[in-house]
Every structure is written in structure tokens, then in C-alpha cells.
Write a protein that binds this DNA or RNA. Structure first.
Lengths: 159, 159
DNA sequence: ACCATTGTTTTGAATCACTCAAAACAAGAT
DNA sequence: ATCTTGTTTTGAGTGATTCAAAACAATGGT
């Protein structure tokens, strides 16, 4: 089989050296380094906004025995550990991304569903303050922009 | 049974006169006025952020034969007609509210899940413009604030 | 290097929120 | 009063996600 080597990242080609970076990320989050975890994190690097199911398909290519529940488990542990962020746009399955720590937002195409990152106007969290927080201790402001992506605009404009 | 009267709103007690207002709202949206629709709109007036299931329970009290599918159907027609707004906070079932037309946002307690309306920081829709819209034609900006409500703050602070 | 501990993954099933479709029914127009 | 069209009921089905128990594997200690 063509599983990635879990140990010894020295004197190996770039693709596997990257796996070493992934490994560090997982380990320094206090999590055990496993093949499914490396595979999910690698797949998520290639797909910045992926569903659990998309990651499942991607991971299966390298690790055929992996279960969908393992993907959910990996994503839950990553999300809890703070090395992955889960976003849940209305009307679609949850998406996961590696970009964490900054306070960026998302723009979603209402037609094709493509998602892109949008930098926050203010750099820190929460980047917006409600006019009246009603006594809440506000910890985060989540912003999702909805609209048509450039490609869908041109396709929609056709006769 | 104790169904609300569907016709003749004159010389009736306030509760039924209100039903007349609900009726007008439904009719002027171009929808047929039915008992389930009146009941859903009435229940939604009392519960500004309700799930389909909560409305189902509420409606059943007055209209015991009503099905959950009818609630979903009513809410879909109301949402399409623009007299009800659907919001879908991460991790919970969809919520419905009667407050439409303005561009307000929501603040959700991460502990107890209570939802309140928050006026928009800027008055119009989209109330925020992304720094770089990436070629998107932005139609809406959806903001959800997450935090602890006043009550959960005090309960969490206990030893 | 081996073993024990603890955490992870597999396997299998179940749940929740929601949607679909056909038939029965009722509101509103004529 | 009748007809048309839209609504609700009835019944079934789906997709995304979660739960639980048993098998398994990664790290820490010996």
C-alpha cells in the first residue's frame, strides 16, 4: 500500500517533508499523530473549505480503510484543539478550514456554493461590536457575505 | 374545539381582532388564509425566534390535527413570500422570525442558546462590505454574534 | 525493546432536521 | 354553487451527523 510514512522525516522528498509539518501541527496541539489525522490535515491543506464527506473521499484515496466516522472524529478533535475551524453556512454541510487564529470571514456564492475567505475589517476578535449587546459577553462576531461569484454572474447574465 | 374564527373580525375580543391582523398579513402576501397559517403566524408572534418544532408544539395546542409537514410548508411559503425570515445559526435547527424588511442581526448565547435581535451597525443592506469582495456581487451580509447571555454569565461565575 | 495506559478508529446503529410525493381537502374566484 | 388552484395530510425517505461498544494503535514508562 502507499501509506505515508509516519516516522523519520529526514532525507525524504518534499511531499513527505510536508507531512512532517503536518505531524508537528498535530503533535503540538497535544494530539496523537495517526495516519487518518495526517491524511485529513493534508487533504484540508489542498482544499481550504471542505466538507467531512469531501475529506472522506480525499482521504480514502490514500488510506482506503478509513471510515467516515473517523473523519468526523479527527475533525472534532482538530476543532476542539483549535487547529481547524468549522464553519456552518446556512443550507450546506459544515465546512472545515485550516486557517485559524486570525478572525477572517467568508463569502459564499448563492448559486454555486463556492466559499472564499474575506479578511476582517478589524484585525481582532470580535471584529464587530453590536450596537447594544443586551448584557451579553460577546466573544465572536461571525460574518457571512452572500452573493454571486464572478463566474456565476457572467453565466447568469447570458440570454 | 377551540379553533380561531377565520372570518368576521368585527365586534370580537382583542385576541381574535389580532387574528384579523395576522389574516391581513397573510392575504396581502398573496397567500391563502388557512387555520394552520394563522396559527403559525400567531405562535411566531409570541415566540420571536422559534424552531419549526417549537411552532409545531404551539400550533398543536389550538389545532390538534396539524402535521409537522404543514408547519414546514407554512414556513416555506411565508419565507418565500417575505413575511417571515429564516435564520440558521450553527449547531441548531433553523429559527424563524416575523421581523423582516430591516437588516438586523442576531446574538446567540453559546451556553443556553437564547437568541436576541441586534440592530445593524450600519443601517442598510448589505450593512457591511468586505474589504475585498473577490469579484462577488455581494447581496447580503449576515452577522451572528456569539457570547454568553447575562444569566449564563452569572451562573458560570458561581463556584 | 516491551508493556501498559490512554486515546483513536472501526463497526454498526440511531437520531435529528428536513424534504419529497401522492392523495385528500379547502380557500377564493367565477 | 361550483371549479380551480393551492394547501394540508399521510407516509416514506434522505443527508448530515452523532452515539456506543469493541478492536486497535500511539506515546510514556520500565
Amino acid at each position: 500500500m502507499t501509506l505515508p510514512e509516519l516516522s523519520s522525516g529526514a532525507d525524504l522528498p518534499p511531499a513527505v517533508a510536508d507531512a512532517g509539518l503536518l505531524e508537528d501541527g498535530i503533535r503540538s496541539a497535544g494530539l496523537k499523530v495517526t495516519a487518518p489525522r495526517l491524511a485529513v490535515l493534508g487533504a484540508l491543506t489542498d482544499r481550504p473549505h471542505a466538507t467531512a464527506d469531501a475529506l472522506f473521499s480525499a482521504v480514502r484515496a490514500d488510506l482506503p480503510g478509513t471510515s467516515l466516522q473517523a473523519i468526523y472524529g479527527v475533525l472534532a478533535s482538530f476543532t476542539t484543539a483549535g487547529i481547524v475551524r468549522k464553519i456552518e453556512p446556512a443550507g450546506s454541510a459544515a465546512l472545515f478550514e485550516r486557517r485559524v487564529g486570525d478572525n477572517h470571514h467568508h463569502i459564499v456564492c448563492t448559486r454555486c456554493g463556492v466559499v472564499h475567505d474575506v479578511d476582517c475589517a478589524v484585525g481582532h476578535s470580535p471584529c464587530l461590536t453590536p450596537v447594544d449587546a443586551l448584557g451579553f459577553d460577546v466573544r465572536a462576531a461571525e460574518v457571512i457575505y452572500w452573493g454571486l461569484c464572478a463566474q456565476c454572474q457572467s453565466e447568469t447574465a447570458l440570454p
